[in-house]
Design a protein around this nucleic acid. Structure first.
Length: 412
DNA sequence: CCGCCACCTTACGA
DNA sequence: ATCGTAAGGTGGC
């Protein structure tokens, strides 16, 4: 494909409270952005994109592309003025703006959300002012899936290296900046090769090599075309229209989560990461070790004896955060998660304030009515922990409520 | 269903 | 220095 000429910088009016790329691109959502000379660079949808931001604008340009069709397809009805460059053919109207609007979910009013979360949560109100402009990215679901499989029991630095290696060895080369090569993320087919697992092990992926190879093969060979995309939140469709197979069931967050759990190397946490950052389910709350610490320290979740928390505990944390933050709980979670990251600790000098919220935890059986979708093989009893936020006047007691537990068979 | 524990690798503190 | 531990967990008992 004929390379288009390097485009000039364009800009999008945007305040730092609407979006802060410095934070959003570094807080462990995407592991592919690289900062070079004050510009953030990444390949998205086959095009090498550069971003920089000042107080009032997000500046962007595309330096090279493998995109098919090329970036010249005019957007549906771009509100932005199509900076005519004078050749009059209209080929300078690119759709990169609409790509960015989608990637950063700019349709969402972030300031309104921050206000809402601050109103309903004293802890958020205290922590958030130093971490404004943090958005959930609309990433490619496949990339999110593989990247977060890499994230298990791992750190952001190494995850980034691993994702970079995947692109370098299995993704198409798109362009260079200086002497640095930029590849797109590899396709499922590219990661389905016979020797992938062994090669990834050589590259230092550890036990995740097997998960990646198995998941790639499953998606390629066992699932219909567009299966992963069929799990996308219909209210938040992908940027590229994908022909999805007839939805066997109404897409819901719960259904997407269940489906992802069937993949190799995907547990509840990774499934929620993919739901939130790849499939557009804003209510997904990935509960990792950091979020669990936050829940215990700032939201009075009781200490537990066991080293790892149970699935029921996992669900209870997510349910609790959804109850106080609402349908975009995952977005709020990422703000507090970032505030809690060590790499951002210089920003978070404030000490935790005692919050007048206490959580009562009790275990309760959930019936079939709440179970979503027919799980053919793994029909099993489900047990969840129900949480209840209770306002306490000035009581800072950390008394934990004894968990009561009942079991009931729900086999049919 | 709950609680352990092995699992790859790297970096950091004691 | 060598070791234990933690790092955005998952799968198998």
């Amino acid at each position: 494909m004929a390379p288009i000429r390097a485009s000039d910088w364009r800009k999008l009016p945007l305040s730092l409270t609407d979006l802060c790329i410095e934070t959003t691109l570094r807080c462990g959502q995407s592991f592919r952005w690289r900062k070079i000379d004050d510009e953030w660079n990444c390949v998205l949808y086959g095009r090498l994109l550069s971003l920089k931001q000042d107080k009032h604008h997000l500046h962007y340009k595309v330096t090279s592309t493998n995109a098919i069709p090329p970036v010249l397809t005019p957007p549906v009805s771009a509100k932005g003025e199509p900076e005519a460059d004078g050749d009059g053919v209209g080929v300078d109207v690119d759709d990169t703006e609409s790509l960015l609007r989608h990637y950063f979910s700019l349709k969402i009013d972030l300031t309104a959300l921050y206000n809402q979360w601050s109103k309903s949560d004293p802890n958020f109100r205290k922590k958030a002012p130093k971490f404004t402009g943090i958005r959930i990215l609309n990433q490619d679901p496949w990339e999110a899936l593989i990247a977060f499989i890499c994230s298990s029991n791992n750190n952001i630095s190494r995850i980034s290296q691993m994702v970079h290696k995947l692109c370098k060895y299995y993704g198409p080369l798109v362009g260079h900046i200086g002497d640095e090569a930029f590849h797109d993320f590899p396709t499922p087919q590219a990661l389905s090769g016979k020797k992938v697992e062994a090669h990834l092990r050589e590259l230092g992926f550890g036990y995740r090599a097997k998960y990646i190879a198995e998941t790639a093969r499953l998606v390629c060979e066992e699932k219909p075309e567009g299966w992963l995309e069929s799990l996308i939140n219909p209210e938040n469709p992908g940027w590229c229209k994908v022909v999805t197979p007839k939805a066997a069931e109404v897409p819901t967050y719960k259904h997407a989560h269940e489906q992802l759990l069937l993949l190799s190397g995907v547990g509840p946490k990774v499934a929620d990461c993919v739901c939130l950052m790849g499939l557009g389910w804003g209510e997904a709350v990935p509960v990792d070790t950091h979020v669990w610490q936050i829940a215990q320290r700032d939201y009075k979740f009781g200490k537990i004896k066991s080293k790892t928390f149970s699935k029921a505990m996992y669900d209870s944390v997510g349910d609790h955060f959804r109850s106080i933050w609402g349908p975009y709980a995952g977005w709020a979670q990422s703000v507090l998660f970032t505030a809690n990251l060590k790499s951002f600790s210089e920003q978070a000098s404030a000490k935790a304030e005692v919050v007048d919220v206490k959580v009562k935890v009790k275990v309760e059986e959930v019936g079939d009515a709440a179970a979503v979708g027919p799980l053919p093989r793994t029909r099993k009893r489900r047990q969840v922990v129900v949480t209840e936020a209770v306002k306490i006047e000035s009581n800072t007691s950390t008394e934990t409520v004894r968990a009561s537990k009942r079991t009931r068979k729900t086999m049919s």
